[in-house]
Amino acid sequence: MVQISAAMVKELRGATGSGIMDCKRVLAEAEGDMEKAIDLLRKKGLAKAAKRAGRSTSEGVIYSYIHTGAKLGVLLEVNCESDFVAKTEDFQLFAKNIAMHIAAANPMGMNPEDVDASVIEKEKEIFRAQMIAEGKPENIIDKIVEGKVEKFYKEVCLMSQQYVKDPQQSITDVLKETIAKIGENIQIKRFVRFQIGE
């Protein structure tokens, strides 16, 4: 049995923002292995986040981000359950990071249903023409086009985009981690991105 020191608990708490008792518990479970303990906390946190998903989010912030040079800006609404959480540093930082991501990644909508149908039809036409030019058999072209459309949605829909600060995570992953850390349901409600000349 590995002895769990106060320094180990402090280190894990600093790395994850989790409570003291949770840190002690997972360190014991992970037999003092810091990496394993962090993984265990993340899994438990994500499970808690899934439970919180149905709770009402009637508080929050409208966050504005103006990029250097004042030619690009984002207005973003992020909701949470309480006014207290809306004012916390973690929540404000989450809103700022998402707004900066939107400025950089230029999503077309939150989810696939938010992307204009005419854009999707145009993409399908382009994909189909590419497949025909490559000499793909007619019977598999539709399947390939559907696959390419799915990939297109992942690239242009905010919730499935790779997070610009950590491409190993999607925005949905970052949202779930923030819910787990903060302890309240959070929703990215809507956004608008302005760019001079667009």
Results as ranks from 00 to 15, higher is better:
residue 100 M to D: 12
residue 121 E to Y: 07
residue 99 A to I: 04
residue 143 K to Q: 14
residue 99 A to Q: 04
residue 105 A to T: 09
residue 106 N to I: 15
residue 113 E to W: 08
residue 101 H to A: 04
residue 122 K to H: 11
residue 140 I to D: 02
residue 142 D to I: 01
residue 105 A to E: 09
residue 116 D to M: 03
residue 97 N to C: 06
residue 122 K to Q: 13
residue 118 S to C: 10
residue 129 A to K: 06
residue 120 I to F: 13
residue 98 I to S: 09
residue 122 K to T: 13
residue 126 I to K: 03
residue 108 M to W: 10
residue 110 M to I: 05
residue 131 M to I: 13
residue 131 M to F: 07
residue 136 K to C: 12
residue 142 D to Q: 01
residue 138 E to Y: 02
residue 101 H to C: 03
residue 113 E to I: 09
residue 136 K to A: 15
residue 127 F to G: 01
residue 139 N to S: 15
residue 108 M to L: 07
residue 129 A to V: 13
residue 129 A to W: 04
residue 116 D to R: 08
residue 128 R to S: 12
residue 141 I to Q: 01
residue 114 D to G: 13
residue 132 I to V: 12
residue 127 F to R: 00
residue 140 I to P: 01
residue 105 A to L: 14
residue 131 M to K: 11
residue 119 V to Y: 06
residue 122 K to S: 08
residue 116 D to K: 12
residue 122 K to L: 02
residue 97 N to L: 13
residue 104 A to G: 11
residue 129 A to G: 13
residue 125 E to C: 00
residue 117 A to Y: 13
residue 106 N to L: 07
residue 109 G to V: 01
residue 99 A to D: 06
residue 142 D to C: 00
residue 117 A to L: 07
residue 119 V to A: 06
residue 131 M to D: 10
residue 107 P to C: 04
residue 102 I to G: 08
residue 96 K to R: 15
residue 116 D to F: 04
residue 100 M to C: 10
residue 104 A to T: 14
residue 140 I to R: 03
residue 126 I to S: 06
residue 113 E to G: 15
residue 108 M to C: 13
residue 109 G to K: 02
residue 99 A to L: 05
residue 109 G to W: 00
residue 120 I to P: 11
residue 114 D to P: 11
residue 129 A to Y: 06
residue 108 M to Q: 12
residue 125 E to A: 02
residue 121 E to K: 14
residue 108 M to N: 10
residue 118 S to P: 11
residue 96 K to A: 09
residue 98 I to V: 12
residue 132 I to R: 00
residue 122 K to Y: 08
residue 98 I to L: 04
residue 125 E to W: 00
residue 121 E to D: 14
residue 120 I to S: 07
residue 135 G to M: 03
residue 103 A to T: 03
residue 124 K to S: 06
residue 120 I to E: 15
residue 118 S to A: 15
residue 127 F to V: 05
residue 124 K to C: 09
residue 115 V to S: 15
residue 106 N to R: 05
residue 104 A to H: 09
residue 134 E to P: 00
residue 103 A to Q: 02
residue 97 N to A: 05
residue 137 P to Q: 10
residue 139 N to E: 11
residue 138 E to R: 00
residue 137 P to K: 04
residue 102 I to N: 14
residue 109 G to S: 03
residue 117 A to E: 08
residue 115 V to A: 06
residue 127 F to Q: 03
residue 102 I to Q: 07
